[in-house]
Computed example of a mutant assay.
Amino acid sequence: MRVLLATTNPIRLSFLMALLRDAGYAPVVLDGHVSAIEGGIGIFPRRLAVPEDQASGARRLLAEAGESDGLA
Score class of each variant (00 low, 15 high):
Val28Met: 04
Gly42Tyr: 00
Met17Leu: 13
Phe44Pro: 00
Met1Leu: 07
Ser56Pro: 04
Gly32Val: 08
Thr8Glu: 05
Arg47Glu: 03
Asp69Glu: 10
Ala65Asp: 07
Ala63Gln: 14
Ile37Glu: 07
Pro10Gln: 07
Tyr25Ile: 14
Asp69Ala: 13
Pro27Asn: 03
Leu20Thr: 10
Ala36Trp: 10
Thr7Lys: 06
Asp69Leu: 04
Arg12Ile: 08
Ser68Val: 11
Glu52Asp: 05
Ala6Gln: 09
Leu61Tyr: 13
Gln54Ile: 09
Phe15His: 15
Gly39Lys: 00
Val34Trp: 01
Ser68Asp: 15
Asp53Ala: 06
Met1Val: 12
Ala55Asn: 02
Glu64Tyr: 06
Arg12Ala: 08
Arg2Met: 15
Arg21Met: 12
Glu38Tyr: 04
Gly42Phe: 00
Leu48Val: 05
Gly57Met: 08
Pro45Ile: 02
Arg46Ile: 08
Val50Lys: 13
Asp31Thr: 02
Ala36Asn: 06
Leu20Arg: 09
Leu4Pro: 15
Asp53Ile: 01
Asp53Arg: 00
Ala23Met: 09
Pro10Glu: 05
Val34Gly: 03
Leu30Gly: 01
His33Arg: 12
Ala55Arg: 03
Ala49Phe: 06
Gly40Cys: 01
Glu67Trp: 03
Gly39Trp: 00
Gly39Met: 00
Ala49Glu: 06
Ala63Ile: 09
Ile41Arg: 01
Glu38Lys: 00
Val29Asn: 08
Leu62Met: 07
Gly39Cys: 00
Val3Asn: 10
Asn9Arg: 12
Val50Cys: 08
Ala23Asn: 05
Leu62Ile: 08
Pro27Trp: 02
Glu52Ser: 04
Asn9Val: 07
Leu20Ile: 11
Ser56Val: 08
Asp22Ala: 11
Leu4Met: 06
Ala63Leu: 07
Pro51Arg: 04
Leu16Phe: 10
Ala36Lys: 03
Leu71Ala: 05
Asp53Ser: 06
Glu64Trp: 09
Gly57Asp: 05
Ala6Leu: 06
Glu67Asp: 08
Pro27Met: 02
Arg46Glu: 02
Met1Ala: 15
Leu16Thr: 13
Gly24Ile: 11
Leu5Thr: 10
Val3Gly: 09
Arg59Lys: 13
Arg2Asp: 15
Val3Glu: 13
Ala72Cys: 12
Ala58Glu: 02
Glu38Arg: 02
Leu61Thr: 08
Asn9Leu: 05
Val34Thr: 12
Arg60Asp: 14
Asn9Phe: 09
Gly70Thr: 04
Leu20Gly: 12
Phe44Thr: 04
Ala55His: 01
Leu19Gln: 12
Gly32Asp: 14
Leu61Arg: 03
Ser56Leu: 10
Glu67Leu: 05
Gly57Ala: 08
Leu19Pro: 13
Val28Ala: 04
Ala49His: 10
Val50Ala: 11
Asp22His: 09
Val34Cys: 02
Thr7Ala: 03
Val3His: 12
Arg60His: 07
Ile43Glu: 06
Phe15Ser: 10
Pro51Asn: 06
Ala36Leu: 03
Met17Arg: 15
Pro51Phe: 01
Met17Gln: 15
Gly57His: 05
Leu48Asp: 03
Glu52Arg: 08
Asp31Gly: 09
Tyr25Cys: 13
Gly24Pro: 14
Val34Tyr: 02
Val29Asp: 13
Arg21Ile: 15
Leu62Ala: 03
Met17Ser: 12
Pro51Ala: 04
